[in-house]
Design a protein around this nucleic acid. Structure first.
Length: 745
DNA sequence: GAGCACTGC
C-alpha cells in the first residue's frame, strides 16, 4: 500500500497558503453533537450470547425445511452467528420485555446496530403477535433490500415467490407478499394506502416505524394515526393488541414519548412526572457500530466553496494513503459539474508518482448507469472523488469512503402558503444533517470529516432539519386525513403542528376543488375518489373532471398527468451547441397550444415508437428513465380509473402502435379545460403592459423560458407549476381563453 | 432568457 508523504500543493497560483483546519477535541465534539456514549469500534460483543430458550423459540418459528429448502436453511445457519454479533442482539430481552409491559417502544439505535433487520424477528415469537408485523421505510429500495435480507436470515423464500414465504415487501408498482407473510416491509405511502382499506390495521399485531428522523409528511401522518389507534380509536381493533415501535438513528426520544403519552392522557390532567418515564411508553437505546471520525473546521467562513473544496480535496489526496475515497457534499448539479471540470483540469497536471484521481458526480437526475459507477472499485493507484448532492446522505451508501468534505448547504423546497408559491433555495444544513454526513466517513474504517465552515457556524445551525410538514402545501396531507375518517383535522395529533393559517389555506383549496362539503368541511364523494389516486389533489381533480362523459379525453389527460407527476422528461443539455441540436430534434413534438399538449405528443410519439425507445429518447434529449416512469404511472392511473368507474372495465391501454393519431383542436380544448378546472388558482391574464397577472391574487408571473409559450402573448394562461427563482415564474403553461375561465366560476 | 435538492402513492 503506497504511503504518500504530504506534498505542498499549489493550486494554479490561486493561493500559496496551505489550508488549515482546526482539529477538535473528542470530548468537546460529543457534547456539541449530542451523541450519547462514545461510538463503539469493536465489532464483537462478548456478552451478547442468546439464552437457550430464546434460541429454541426462534427455531420453532421457522417451517421445517428440507429438500429444495435445505439451501435456505444452510444460508440461515451461516447468517446466525453474524446476527448474534450485532449490537442489537444483546438488547433482545430488553426489547421483548418492554413490549410486554407497554404498547409503545421508542428505540434509538445508531447506524449499524441492526435494528431494521432484527427487531421484527424478535417480535415474531412473542405471545401477543398473532398477526403480521409491518415495518415502514421512507424509500422503496430500502424496503425491498431489507425484506430480501430478513428472508435469508429466516431461511424462508421471499415474498410472492412461494406460498411458504414468511417475509415480503410492498412498494408502489411492486407488491411481493403471500398469504403467509408475517413480516412485511413497506414504504410509508403504502401503509397510508392500507389505512384507507382498513383504518384499524386489523391484520397487523405490530407496526414498526423505521427511520423516523427523516420526518416525511407521511411518517408524521402515520404517527398520528397510530396514536389514535392506540388510544381513542382502540375499540376499532376489536380487542386485538397493537404494538408500536418507533425507531431511528438520532431520535428525539423525549419528544416522541411526550407525543404518545399525551394521547393516553386525554383529557390531559397535567402530569408532574417526567415524560421520559411514562408508564405507557418504554425506551431503549442501542449503540451503533461506527468507526470514529475526526472533525476539522475552517478557521474562518469562506465565500468560495469551490476553491475551498479543491484545496481540501487535493491536500487530502496528497497527504492521505490509499485506500480511502473522498465524498464531497454539494448543494446542486451545477456546482458539481463545475467542480468536476476544475478537478479534472488540475489532476491532469499531477506528478506521475502521485496516485490518479477518478471524479464521479452523483445526483438524482444522473442516468442510472452513471450512478452505478460509484459502486465499482477504483482502478489500481487511483482515488475516487465523489461529488454528490445530499442523495449520498441517506439514499445511497457509497462504499470505500474515508474522507468527507461537507460544504454545509443543501437545496430545499420551501412553500409560501400565502402566495401558494414554492421556491428551491440553498440553505445551511442542520446539525443532525452535518452529523449524518460526517458518519459517511466511518462506515468501514476510522475517517476524517472536513467542514468548510468554522465551528462557530456549526453551533449556530438548527439542531434538526425542519420537518417537511412545516414546509409544504398541506392539501394532500389533509385529504389523506379526511379520507381516513379524520374530520377535525385541526386537532389531529401531529408531532409538529403546522400554523393554523397553513391548514386553513389548504382546506380552502380542497373546498375550491370541490372535494369537501361546503357546510361542515366533511369529505364528499369527489374527495374520496381523489384520495384514492396517487396524485396531488389538484392533479386528482383534473382526472375527476376528465372522467365526465362530455369531456371524452380521460386517457389523454392521464398521459399528461403522468408526465407532470414524474421528473422533467426534457433534459437540459450543458452546452449551447447541444441545446440547439436537442431543440431541432424535438421540434416535431412541440405544440403551440402549450407545454401540456407538448407532453402529450411526446408520450404519443414515444409509445408509438416500435424499434428502439431508448434511442428515440436519447436522440431528442428526453430522459428515458423519466419516460419509463411515465409508462408506469400511466398504467397505474389507467387501472385505478377503471376501479373508480371512470373508465369502462374493458378499456385497455391505447394500443401502442396505433396511438399516434392527430390531435384535433376540439380534443386539445377539452384537455386544457380539464386542466383549468384543477388549476383554477393557477390562471393568469395578459395585461396591456405585456405582463401576466394571476386572476386570483393579482400576482405578476412570467412564462418560464423553458416553456414552448415563452415570449408569446396569449389572452390567458393556465400553469401547473409556480416557482420563484430570480422572479415569479409559471412553468408548464398552456394557452386558455378568458371566456372559458369565466365559465368555471 | 432560466438553471431543478430528495423522497413517495
Amino acid at each position: 500500500m503506497p504511503n504518500h508523504a504530504p506534498i505542498q500543493f499549489d493550486i494554479e497560483a490561486r493561493s500559496d497558503s496551505t489550508l488549515k483546519f482546526s482539529p477538535q477535541q473528542q470530548n468537546k465534539k460529543r457534547k456539541r453533537e449530542h451523541e450519547q456514549p462514545p461510538p463503539r469500534v469493536s465489532s464483537v460483543h462478548q456478552n451478547g450470547q442468546p439464552k437457550k430458550n430464546r434460541q429454541s423459540n426462534l427455531n420453532s418459528s421457522l417451517p421445517n425445511l428440507s429438500g429444495p429448502n435445505a439451501k435456505l436453511n444452510v444460508r440461515r445457519q451461516t447468517l446466525l452467528p453474524i446476527r448474534k454479533q450485532l449490537p442489537i442482539w444483546s438488547h433482545q430481552q430488553e426489547i421483548r420485555q418492554s413490549l410486554r409491559r407497554t404498547d409503545v417502544l421508542v428505540l434509538s439505535g445508531e447506524t449499524g446496530s441492526g435494528k431494521s433487520t432484527q427487531v421484527p424477528q424478535f417480535l415474531l415469537t412473542e405471545q401477543w403477535c398473532n398477526g403480521r408485523i409491518a415495518v415502514t421505510q421512507p424509500r422503496r429500495v430500502a424496503a425491498i433490500s431489507l425484506a430480501r435480507r430478513v428472508a435469508e436470515e429466516m431461511g424462508t423464500p421471499l415474498g410472492s415467490s412461494s406460498p411458504a414465504s414468511r417475509v415480503g415487501y410492498s412498494v408502489r408498482f411492486d407488491n411481493s407478499t403471500s398469504a403467509n407473510t408475517r413480516i412485511k416491509y413497506l414504504t410509508e405511502g403504502m401503509l397510508l394506502q392500507e389505512l384507507l382499506r382498513d383504518p384499524a390495521l386489523k391484520e397487523y399485531s405490530a407496526v414498526i416505524v423505521d427511520e423516523i428522523h427523516e420526518r416525511s409528511v407521511n411518517v408524521d401522518l402515520i404517527l398520528g394515526f397510530l396514536r389514535n389507534l392506540l388510544t381513542t380509536g382502540r375499540h376499532a381493533r376489536e380487542g386485538k393488541p397493537l404494538k408500536v415501535v418507533i425507531m431511528s438513528a438520532t431520535v428525539d426520544t423525549e419528544k416522541l414519548v411526550k407525543f404518545f403519552d399525551e394521547g393516553y392522557k386525554i383529557p390531559h390532567l397535567g402530569s408532574s412526572e417526567s415524560p421520559v418515564q411514562s408508564k405507557f411508553i418504554s425506551t431503549v437505546y442501542v449503540e451503533g457500530r461506527q468507526y470514529p471520525v475526526s472533525i476539522n473546521y475552517l478557521p474562518e467562513p469562506t465565500n468560495n466553496i469551490i476553491e475551498m473544496s479543491l484545496k481540501t480535496i487535493f491536500q487530502t489526496h496528497y497527504k492521505e494513503p490509499l485506500p480511502g475515497d473522498i465524498l464531497i457534499f454539494l448543494p446542486g448539479q451545477e456546482i458539481i459539474e463545475n467542480l468536476e471540470r476544475q478537478i479534472n483540469e488540475l489532476a491532469a497536471n499531477m506528478e506521475a508518482e502521485v496516485p490518479k484521481m477518478l471524479t464521479l458526480p452523483l445526483f438524482a437526475a444522473l442516468p442510472q448507469a452513471a450512478q452505478q459507477r460509484i459502486f465499482q472499485p477504483a482502478p489500481p493507484r487511483t482515488r475516487k472523488i465523489i461529488l454528490s448532492t445530499n442523495i449520498a446522505e441517506t439514499s445511497v451508501t457509497v462504499p470505500g469512503i474515508r474522507h468527507v468534505v461537507d460544504c454545509g448547504t443543501v437545496k430545499m423546497k420551501y412553500f409560501h402558503s400565502k402566495l401558494g408559491l414554492e421556491a428551491l433555495l440553498a440553505k445551511p444544513i442542520s446539525q443532525s444533517a452535518a452529523i449524518q454526513r460526517k458518519g459517511r466517513a466511518g462506515r468501514e474504517a476510522p475517517g476524517k470529516c472536513y467542514r468548510l465552515y468554522p465551528e462557530s457556524e456549526y453551533v449556530k445551525l438548527d439542531r434538526n432539519t425542519r420537518p417537511e410538514i412545516l414546509r409544504c402545501d398541506l392539501s394532500q396531507a389533509i385529504l389523506i386525513m379526511k379520507a381516513r375518517g379524520v374530520n377535525d383535522v385541526l386537532n389531529f395529533p401531529l408531532l409538529d403542528p403546522p400554523p393554523q393559517k397553513a391548514m386553513e389555506k389548504a382546506l380552502l383549496l380542497l373546498l375550491q376543488l370541490g372535494a369537501l362539503n361546503g357546510e361542515d368541511g366533511s369529505i364528499n364523494e369527489i374527495g374520496q375518489k381523489m384520495a384514492k389516486l396517487p396524485l396531488t389533489p389538484t392533479l386528482a381533480r383534473v382526472i375527476v373532471e376528465a372522467a365526465k362523459p362530455e369531456m371524452d379525453c380521460l386517457e389523454d389527460v392521464i398521459d399528461v398527468l403522468a408526465c407532470l407527476s414524474v421528473e422533467n422528461i426534457f433534459l437540459n443539455p450543458a452546452t449551447e451547441e447541444k441545446r440547439e441540436a436537442a431543440e431541432a430534434a424535438r421540434k416535431d413534438l412541440f405544440r403551440r397550444e402549450g407545454d401540456h399538449i407538448t407532453l402529450l405528443s411526446a408520450v404519443r410519439a414515444y409509445t408509438s415508437e416500435r424499434t428502439d425507445r431508448r434511442e428515440w429518447a436519447e436522440q431528442r434529449w428526453i430522459s428515458h428513465r423519466a419516460m419509463q416512469n411515465v409508462m408506469n404511472v400511466r398504467k397505474q392511473l389507467h387501472a385505478q380509473c377503471k376501479q373508480l368507474g371512470f373508465l369502462s372495465k374493458d378499456a385497455s391501454l391505447r394500443a401502442d402502435s396505433a396511438s399516434f393519431t392527430a390531435l384535433d383542436e376540439r380534443k386539445t380544448d377539452m384537455i386544457i379545460q380539464c386542466l383549468t378546472r384543477g388549476f383554477l388558482f393557477n390562471t393568469a391574464a395578459l395585461h396591456p403592459d405585456g405582463s401576466y397577472r394571476t386572476l386570483f391574487g393579482k400576482q405578476t408571473v412570467a412564462i418560464h423560458p423553458s416553456s414552448v409559450l415563452f415570449g408569446r402573448k396569449v389572452e390567458a394562461i393556465v400553469f401547473s407549476e409556480f416557482v420563484f427563482t430570480t422572479k415569479a415564474y409559471a412553468r408548464g403553461v398552456s394557452a386558455v381563453s378568458l371566456a372559458h375561465i369565466d365559465g368555471l366560476l
